[in-house]
Simulated scan of single mutants.
Amino acid sequence: MTSTAAPAALVVDGAYELAEGGRWVDGRYVYVDILSGRLFELRDDTGLAAPRQLAQLDVPLGAVAPVSDQPGVWIAAAGTGIALLTADSAPEWLDRPEDRTAAPSRMNDGVADPAGRFWAGSMAYDGTHGAGSLYRTDLDGTVVRVLDGLTIANGPAFTADGTTMYLADTAAGTILRCRVDPVSGDLSGGPETFAHLREGEGSPDGMTVDDEGGLWVALWGTGTIRRYHPDGRLLHTVTVPAPHPTSVCLHPSDNRLFVTTARHGVKSPTATSGAVLSVPVPVRGVAACSWRGRR
């Protein structure tokens, strides 16, 4: 295992409370500020010069994925459910399953899989143990609860063939690995523990899979990013200049890792907390998948 304090570049000092959900979509890097309900983009063709706000909700916005063949339309994990989102209209809610839970809760991170389904997790505002769930939005718009008993469901990430999903339960310090039927979207057996973080190693947050199958994980609380081999071996640890990295995204055509960070919970935040950073790395990523529903 190697460890580096990489020369991280400050891409955006946005003073975001909880920047998250970084994805590479159609030549641009998109990300959210969860608690303010805002969606932003940085365009590669402008040299990532300045963020542009694409949408704002009056509820927390956990993550988005593009909707296939519908430019400017996003499927979003937001508020208490899943919605279709555009810049100039009210959200179209597909379902709000967290309205039906005992503890006041919100949606959190989410991602589309290679088959075109959208997966997103939830969490209780007060961190109630076991109150979080993982949901799958199928192509017909049906929202299905796939797993429950989680606490803070975070960072769904898929392998290129869509048969393996990694899922973090942040509060438990655990990264789960699930086998997925790429046709039905059903899980093949129960989740297995892929990695467990010990006290002091940080809490697993956003994740992504690189073009070699390695899993990158942002570790809240320690200012570190880890890369794991598919067999679970820890390959590399990168230190970034912010205590709470929240999501990781690899550029698909050059060797840069984009990292969102949070100011939330930082007593004396600097410009790198609540920001977007970039770090040179030896591998690349793939563009975000789209939700292929509602055609």
Rank of each mutant, 00 (worst) to 15 (best):
T159V: 15
E212L: 14
W216S: 11
E199N: 05
D169L: 11
T239S: 14
L139T: 14
V248Q: 06
S184K: 12
A218Y: 09
T222E: 12
T193P: 03
T137P: 08
R233Q: 13
T208W: 02
P252S: 06
R179G: 15
L150R: 12
G149D: 08
H229D: 15
D211H: 10
A172K: 13
S247E: 02
R198S: 14
V248C: 12
L234Q: 09
T170M: 12
G232W: 10
S184Y: 04
R227S: 08
I152Y: 11
R227M: 12
T174F: 08
M165E: 06
V238C: 02
L215N: 07
L139E: 02
V144S: 14
G162D: 07
L139N: 02
N154V: 12
S203M: 15
P182D: 02
Y228N: 06
P252H: 05
L235K: 10
I152S: 13
S203T: 13
S184I: 05
L187F: 13
R226M: 04
P245Y: 07
P204F: 01
V217K: 01
R198D: 14
G202E: 03
A172F: 06
A153H: 01
D210Y: 08
D161M: 07
G132E: 03
L250R: 12
P245A: 03
T142R: 15
A195P: 02
P241F: 01
E212G: 15
V144D: 03
P182G: 03
L134F: 10
W216N: 06
G149S: 09
A171G: 06
L147E: 14
A218N: 09
D254Y: 12
L250H: 01
G206A: 05
G214I: 02
C249M: 15
H196L: 09
A157K: 08
T193M: 03
V144C: 05
A172Y: 00
R177T: 13
E192T: 15
T151G: 10
C249G: 10
F158W: 14
L167C: 11
I175M: 06
L250V: 08
R177V: 14
D231W: 10
C178P: 05
G149M: 04
A242Q: 10
G190R: 12
P252N: 04
V144P: 00
G202L: 05
R177N: 02
P243V: 02
L250C: 09
Y135G: 05
A153G: 13
G190T: 05
L235W: 05
A157M: 11
S188V: 15
L176P: 01
D254W: 08
T246V: 03
L219R: 15
Y166H: 14
D205G: 10
V144F: 00
E199W: 02
L250Q: 04
L139Y: 02
V143E: 11
L235F: 00
R226D: 13
L234W: 05
V248F: 04
G202I: 03
C178M: 15
S188W: 09
I152P: 09
T170C: 11
G185A: 01
D186Y: 01
I152K: 12
M165Q: 07
D205S: 00
F194A: 01
V144K: 09
D138Q: 12
D254S: 13
D138T: 15
G132V: 10
E199V: 10
F158N: 07
A242H: 04
Y166G: 04
T237E: 14
T163P: 02
T208R: 05
G213V: 07
H236T: 11
D181G: 06
R233H: 13
T163H: 11
V240A: 08
L167E: 00
L167V: 04
E199P: 06
E192Y: 00
